[in-house]
Design a protein around this nucleic acid. Structure first.
Lengths: 201, 201
DNA sequence: TCTTCTTATTGAACACTGTTCAGTATCTTG
DNA sequence: CAAGATACTGAACAGTGTTCAATAAGAAGA
């Protein structure tokens, strides 16, 4: 089945080509302003062609959404070699914020676009992975005597919320009301406040 | 100038009429899915008419965005009679979350739609008001000996981030990864975790 | 009152959007 | 070489935000 194999490969390459184009357009213009025609033009194909490989616009961007989660997971996987769980927890948060700053468009797509929540496939699983990693670390901290009288699930949700809040305000440009400080300073120092609180909890 | 006055009044009434229609459509369908034609149809006018009263779609929704902030401010103004600053801070957060739950569409518009950030008029000022209220309370807490070695600005940003994170995850349906708990439980208990941490900070 | 002038409203038009689909060209199989 | 599958096109549809000439209605001045 050599030629069937080749066909498969070609199909894969084409979907990859479309995704490359989509990523390029999306990172240039943002999700809302990226159109199927823009992507088609980018890769020199007709708009209709994209529908041969993807169900709709949402599916295309859902693949990038997954890609974003894989990137996020990768950036926090590095922290596995941090022995102390509390140090790991703190580093995880820093890595999370750093990811949002360096991949603002991905972050928007992953958490701030409605579309993405509708597809409950691999993306949701990957998001769960990222959360589980934090939950596991939280529990490890508890075994060391931290967060004694706190429910791990709720605390994890709380930590994720705080991190997400910082990043969401950043991504949607809602940091102007703290004008005396730069956005970078706010995020870094705000997070430090948070870790200080975790330290004492 | 009685007739000029009447003209002015009519103009005001018309803009109000458009905003009422816009609010109604928007609360029914959400921002992204609300069109100028939808609004025009709702109030039985031609689409072109709306452009006689508003510059563009963004300006229409920016008015609702401001409306949202006035609602939010009102709901937290009630807390002025809470004497103890720390109790007031906690209540402020609860009110904030409650506002998001009860006015999910407003919240989306206020914090999660790109459009809104582009207009730096009254909306930004109102947002600043809401933040200042928290900052003031934080400082009052510090005068009572709390949050001793923490910068009020950064701590305020942190608190706002945590609250916003909880609400943003809720508004964008990103709570499915904590499946064992209902969204309401997560938000309430997650916030309680947070206040517990503040208590000890 | 009649005419000018301003103001308010319309709906067609423009350039865009996501999506579908009949048609076509290319490549594979019998 | 004919038949069939596969990939691709571009026109078409219904929708979007926005503009603008035409028009109707109301106020001002003669």
């Amino acid at each position: 089945m050599s030629i069937a194999e080749r066909k498969n490969k070609e199909k894969e390459e084409m979907t990859k080509c479309i995704l490359d184009g989509a990523r390029s357009v999306f990172l240039k213009k943002g999700y809302e302003r990226s159109s199927i025609r823009n992507i088609a033009e980018e890769i020199h194909y007709s708009p209709g062609t994209l529908y041969f490989y993807f169900k709709d616009k949402g599916e295309i961007f859902h693949k990038l959404y997954e890609e974003g989660f894989r990137l996020l997971l990768k950036s926090s996987k590095v922290l596995d070699n941090v022995e102390d769980p509390f140090e790991r927890l703190k580093a995880n948060g820093r890595a999370y914020i750093q990811f949002a700053v360096e991949n603002r468009d991905y972050y928007n797509l992953m958490f701030l676009v409605d579309e993405a929540a509708e597809y409950k496939t691999e993306g949701l699983y990957l998001a769960g992975e990222a959360i589980n990693q934090i939950r596991t670390t939280v529990k490890a901290c508890q075994e060391q005597g931290r967060f004694k009288d706190m429910n791990a699930d709720f605390l994890t949700f709380m930590i994720v919320s705080a991190l997400h809040g910082i990043c969401a305000l950043f991504c949607k440009d809602r940091t102007k009301n703290f004008a005396e400080h730069t956005t970078e300073e706010l995020m870094a120092q705000g997070y430090q406040c948070f870790t200080l609180m975790l330290e004492r909890a």
